[in-house]
Structures are given as C-alpha cells and as structure tokens.
Design a protein around this nucleic acid. Sequence first.
DNA 1: ATATTTATGTTTCCAAGGAAACATAAATAT
DNA 2: ATATTTATGTTTCCTTGGAAACATAAATAT
Lengths: 162, 162
Amino acid sequence: MNKEEQVIIGFRDLLNKMVWLNKSKMEESLKGYKSSEVHCIEYIGRNEDPNVTKLAESFYMTRGAISKLTKKLIEKGIIESYQKPDNKKEIYFRLTEQGKVIFNLHEDLHNEFQERDKAVFEQITEEQFDIMLSFAEKYNRHLDAEIMKQGIDISNRNDFKK
Amino acid sequence: MNKEEQVIIGFRDLLNKMVWLNKSKMEESLKGYKSSEVHCIEYIGRNEDPNVTKLAESFYMTRGAISKLTKKLIEKGIIESYQKPDNKKEIYFRLTEQGKVIFNLHEDLHNEFQERDKAVFEQITEEQFDIMLSFAEKYNRHLDAEIMKQGIDISNRNDFKK
DNA sequence: ATATTTATGTTTCCAAGGAAACATAAATAT
DNA sequence: ATATTTATGTTTCCTTGGAAACATAAATAT
C-alpha cells in the first residue's frame, strides 16, 4: 500500500474511532439525546442564522433528513424557529433555554475529549500542524472543484437530475 | 478555533467529500451495486478468510448489519461462503466469478480516483507524508487504548453490557 | 468430563436517513 | 409585468443499519 492510501486510511480509521468513542461517551453523559441531535444543537448554537440547507450542507445530509431532525428538536423544545421580516422562505433556528443547557453540557464534554487526547497533540509541533492543515486545505479545494464538475448538490443530490 | 480542531475538521470534511464523490461516481459506473456492497466486495477480495466479524470490525458496523449485507451478496451471486473442516463456527466468504468482475471494475475505478487526486499528492514531500502518517498512527493507538478502557466491542457494541 | 463463559453469526424490531415528488417563495429572464 | 427557473423546506415511501435477543460452536474453568 502506498503512502497516499495509508494517509487516507489512517485518518479514516482515526475519525471512525473518534466518532464511535465520542458518541458512546456522549449518549452516556447526555442521556436522552442522540449524538445526531447534539451535533445539530452544537451547529445551531455556534452559527449565525442556521437553516435546513446550511445544516444539510455542513453535515453532508439531505435537506429532508435535516427537516425531520429539526422538527423533532422543536417538538422536544430544544430549538425554536424564526424568520426574518423580509424573507418568507427561509426558516432559521435558535436554541431555547433548554437547548442552551444541552449546548453547554456538550461544550464541557468537548473539552473533556480535548483533554483526553491532549497527550497526542502535545507531541505535534506547530510546523507539523501547518503541514497537515495545508494538505487538508489543498485536498479540500481539489475535491470542491471535482464536486462542482460533477454538479452534485450535497444538500439534496437528486435535484440536479431535473 | 485551535489547530487541533482545525486538523480534525479539515480531515473530516475531506473524507466526507471523498465518500460522497466516490460513491456517486461508483454507483454511476457500477450500476446496480451500492457502494456498501462494492466496499464489501473489495474487502473480501483483498483479505484472507474474511468473515462477518472481521468485516464488522473493519467497517465499524455491527455484525448484524454485515450479516444482512453478505446474505444479500450471496443471493445476488457475487460472493459465496465456505468453512474450514476443523471449525464449524466461523463462516468465511470468497468472491464468485461474477464478484471478481466487479472487484476488477472497482480496482479500475480506484485507480481513476488516484489519478484524479494525483495533482494534490504530487505536492506533498516524503517527509510530509511521514509526519501525517506518524500523527495518524499515534492518534490511532491512543484511541485504541481509550476504546479498550471503555470496553467497547466495535463489532457489536451491545454485547459488553451482558 | 462437565459446566460456564466467550465468540460467532442470525433474526426481529425499530429508527435514521436517502430518494423523489411536492409546495411555495425568491430570483431571474423575457 | 409576467413567465420561468432556482432555492428552500416538507412529506411519503423505502432502504440501511443499529439494538437486542437468540442459537450454536468453541474455549475455558471447575
């Protein structure tokens, strides 16, 4: 196996493991909330005027799936929707007080994860970080261009067939 | 956002994009086969005596899900199962002739993807690859240890509760 | 040798998410 | 000004995959 593949596989395994581990820790601490819900809460808490489309693009999910997820969060009283006076199409979300509590619990947990992995990051120099960041940026840009070529709309891959 | 997070998010986005892009290319070229099926065919074609458990661990999926997937591939005539004379418990898989055709088509596609992304990799020096590989290895080892601590069995996370 | 525990694989039930069709608002073209 | 196209969000139907219970074989303990 060449190094190109090794890097990709190494990071893929890494992220898979991280997702598993954090997910199980999360659903242990934040009982009653799925990790997808918490992820959604995190995005809504951190971003300006988030809507279904932005969430879908960020999570690489369809708008339909996000629509259902946000609906559930509204029913649970974790988020609420709002609109702007000059736009009757877009629907944005914000956290309720209850949502903010979960958001903060998640932030704590996030710090806990950082603490857990600190030992690994301490071994990495600034230069090494920059090398990895530069690689990720280059590759991301390249794939963005390829995705454009393909004409895939991440937020609902079907529409492009129209 | 600190560099630790940036690296993780950068690679996460990268892999998400790659999965999307390759998936849609794949299901375009290998019509009639889902990317999960092709992924499974790839693993079976490349590894010695693959069974449900090994597939599950490699894909970070439950044994139940893999069991269903392999069952479907057997029904489609793409793979077949075999056992060893001295072990009546483990069930292994191999590709049928039809499966080998798909395997080879997938290999071609894989090369095509490498070709597509060559421009990115050409800019990376040997030293830079080694830095990234070393980071991935360290982090993987760290997470393996954490997963051990948690007592999570990736192949069926529930069993450990017994 | 027998009992207990662990490993492997399967099945049933359920939830999450994608595909496609749809509704409506906004943007753009004519 | 009106028609057409595009953007945004929702809904229905269906597939995939997880959770949990189960069956059986193998490994281990007694």
